[in-house]
Amino acid sequence: MDSIPANRRFWNRISSAYQHEHDPQIGATPRLWGMYSIPDAHLHALGDITGKRVLELGCGAGQWFRELAAEGAAVVGLDLSEAQLAAAAGAMGANRYPLVQGAAEQLPFAANSFDLVFCDFGGLSWAPPHVAVPQAARVLSQGGRLVFNVASPWSESCYDVAASHVTTTLQQDYFGLSAIAEDGGATSYQLSYGGWVRILRGAGLIIDDLIEPRPDLGTFNGYNETDTPDWAHRWPAELLWVTHKP
C-alpha cells in the first residue's frame, strides 16, 4: 500500500510525455499486447468480449478499453493517476465510458462485478501482486477471467543496471524478485514464475494458459531501448497470463 502515493505522483508527472510518445503505437490497431505490439488475434488471450462487463486495471488514455467498448463490451477504466484519466477522457470524443480513479490494491467495486479483468503492463505491474490479484479475483463473477501481461522475470534477471539494458547473461538473482525501485520513489513489481503461480492459485484462480509473446525478428520495441536487438525473439520478455474464477 505504501507505493500508492509515489506511484500516483510518478504517473501524473510522466503522463503527458508518455502519451505523446506511445499513444501512436498503443492505439495503432485494436488489441495490441505489450512492448512489441503483438496482436491479440495471434495470441488468443481475450476472446469474444461482446456483452461482457470489463474492467481495465491501469487504463492510461483508454486505447484498449475504447476498442473493447466498440466491440460491444461494457467497459470501466480504472487508473491511479488523474492525469492518465484526463488523457482518457480527452480521447473519448462523443463516446463516454466510466472512468474511476483508484488503485489495483483497493478496488472500489463490489464482488462479482465483472466478467473480465485485464491489463497490459498496468495495475498488476504497479501494485503488490499478493494484494492486487486477490482484489481482481474478488470483483470477478463466477467463470470470469483475469488476463494480464507483465514483464518476464528473465528480463529483470538479465538486466544490467550499470549499462541500462538487458544482456545475454544473467545479471541478478532470480529468487527474491519483488519490488523494483523506480524514479521518484515509485515502485513496480516483478515475480518469478512460481511466485505468480502461488499468488494466482492462492486467490482461487485457475490458470488456463501462460502465453510468452514472441516478436518476429526485427520487431521494434516501442517502449524502451533496454533490449539488445532481437533479445525478445530468443528469450521471453513478457508473460501473458490467462486465468479464470471457477
Rank of each mutant, 00 (worst) to 15 (best):
A103Y: 08
V75T: 13
N224C: 09
V117G: 01
A127F: 00
L205N: 09
A61K: 05
G184T: 08
C119F: 04
L57Q: 05
A94R: 11
L217A: 15
A88Q: 02
D23G: 02
S192Y: 03
A104F: 09
P98T: 06
R201W: 11
P129D: 02
L239Y: 08
Y159Q: 04
I4E: 11
E182D: 10
D115Q: 13
G184Y: 07
V54H: 11
V150P: 00
L177E: 08
D48A: 13
R214G: 00
C59T: 13
L85C: 04
D115K: 12
Y36T: 04
Y97R: 10
H233N: 09
R53I: 05
M35P: 01
G122K: 05
E82P: 02
Q142V: 11
G90R: 10
G195Y: 06
W231C: 01
H130K: 04
L239C: 03
G184E: 12
V75C: 13
F175C: 08
E21M: 01
H165A: 02
K245G: 02
D79L: 06
D183V: 07
S37P: 00
W154G: 01
Y18I: 00
Y159T: 03
D23Q: 08
A186H: 03
E225R: 14
N7V: 02
A237F: 02
R13Y: 01
G184M: 08
G34I: 07
